[in-house]
Design a protein around this nucleic acid. Structure first.
Lengths: 257, 257
DNA sequence: CGCATATTTGATAGATTTCAATTTATGTGG
DNA sequence: CCACATAAATTGAAATCTATCAAATATGCG
């Protein structure tokens, strides 16, 4: 249990979507954490488990899973460093999905108890948590469009565009970022077969839209890839770039929302 | 603007997922509403529109839509009478999806202003709203499994099982309920083609799993249909039947969550 | 260096879409 | 209440996309 500033990437994510004053931000940073390391492919939250803490991703990539009775899996969300993977568990502690590290990962556990006391003291924090989930839900909606209405090439392209934006790697029609996940994992995100993911990636490579070097992925022409993907970044609510952060509860100074 | 008890189905939905005391329940029922009637296939909330009220469904079926650039649509959520279709708009007023009536519908508009003052007075109400969205998100996750990992027959069967459960129509391995939506709408939910929905429904009929009489749908053998669908009702959080309603904020009497 | 895991490729089967009619409901005005 | 106009459901045949199965490389790691 420590009281460091390791939660600052998460705070950055929250303030990207909600406006928090100094005291509220301080309350977040002060939250006690318990750091754990998770091996690749290890579940660290299991289905129907009752959890008493939230998992904030510090390093690595985390997937939220659901599965069919036969065991084929669907990844319903991808969590990158700075994301809280199951903030909703504060309000509904029984996990309806499993969380798995797709790569070796470092997780910061924040107890529900401490989060609840922060929420009780600062209503704007409750609101920020709620809003965080809403944005996640908007991402899920886009994924549903992906799964239901786009072909394999667009699905993969869309995913790559999204991850590039979420990692902040896009600049000047170009993006380079690490995506150390398996093609099997990509298939579980996109509702395809690992084989088909492989072929689709090759097609994108042959069109000179992307370049894959090991786990390093380069988007050579972001605009064209976004066109193939039918991607627009608005739904990601990267507030710094796309609009005003939100707040309902009045700021202490009396500033309106 | 009236102050009647028309919100009581919505209150029922909320208390199915969260525990609210008398004062809190009263605060919900007291909310001023503005009733509107919407024709079938009419959008009543448009994409990127900034809304200042929540739409509670009183009658009819409402779909939440997203679409690709070419205009093919994906329904990302279905809202039945008693559901608030965009409760999240209280926290994030810009609509990231459109809302459309799939049938003639009656909508109760509840202003954000009045909701916010209820939230300010009763933190448990904020919490209940948040939790409501979390359950919606769990439903979306199941839909993602549907879209990504199940074949046409299972997708349709799963949807029918879900709607049957949500309308409370299931009893004794049998369910009869009205589903006055078009096969085109079903295809937009399931990520299929209207033609394929038609063929799949016929297949389910030929297996004597369902019976369709106009817009009245009968599930002849719920257990078998659920097996085909790989359906289990847990995620719907129909708390009355499946577990304790939740609450974080202490009850006034001091009762713990 | 060698095992285990991941990627890549080929050939084939299967599911779903697409396109184009046709039939059947549904609603409306006379 | 009927006739008409429109929307919805249904069917067939062909084209496409994606999955499946099986094997052959690569790659990473101890």
């Amino acid at each position: 249990m420590s009281f460091s500033a390791e939660l600052s990437p998460w705070l950055g994510r929250l303030t990207m979507r909600s406006r928090l004053d100094d005291a509220e931000q301080h309350a977040i940073l002060q939250l006690p954490i318990h750091t754990i390391h998770v091996r690749a492919n290890a579940d660290f939250v299991r289905l129907d488990e009752s959890v008493d803490h939230v998992s904030v991703v510090a390093e690595g990539i985390v997937g939220r899973f659901d599965q069919t009775a036969e065991g084929t899996r669907q990844i319903t969300a991808l969590h990158l460093p700075g994301d809280a993977a199951d903030l909703h568990s504060v309000a509904l502690p029984r996990a309806r999905s499993a969380l798995q590290a797709l790569t070796p990962a470092t997780i910061l556990r924040v107890s529900h108890a401490s989060l609840r006391s922060a929420m009780a003291q600062y209503p704007a924090i409750t609101e920020a948590f709620w809003r965080d989930g809403i944005v996640d839900q908007a991402v899920q909606s886009q994924w549903m469009v992906n799964l239901g209405r786009r072909d394999a090439k667009a699905r993969i392209a869309h995913l790559l565009c999204e991850v590039a934006c979420r990692t902040g790697a896009v600049a000047d029609n170009h993006a380079e970022f690490s995506l150390p996940v398996t093609q099997q994992h990509l298939s579980e995100v996109t509702g395809l077969t690992a084989v088909h993911v492989n072929r689709t990636l090759r097609a994108l490579r042959e069109e000179n839209l992307i370049h894959a070097e090991g786990r390093q992925l380069t988007i050579l022409d972001f605009a064209s890839l976004a066109r193939v993907a039918d991607f627009t970044a608005g739904y990601l609510q990267m507030a710094v770039a796309f609009g005003e952060p939100e707040r309902i509860v009045a700021l202490p100074q009396g500033e309106p929302s």
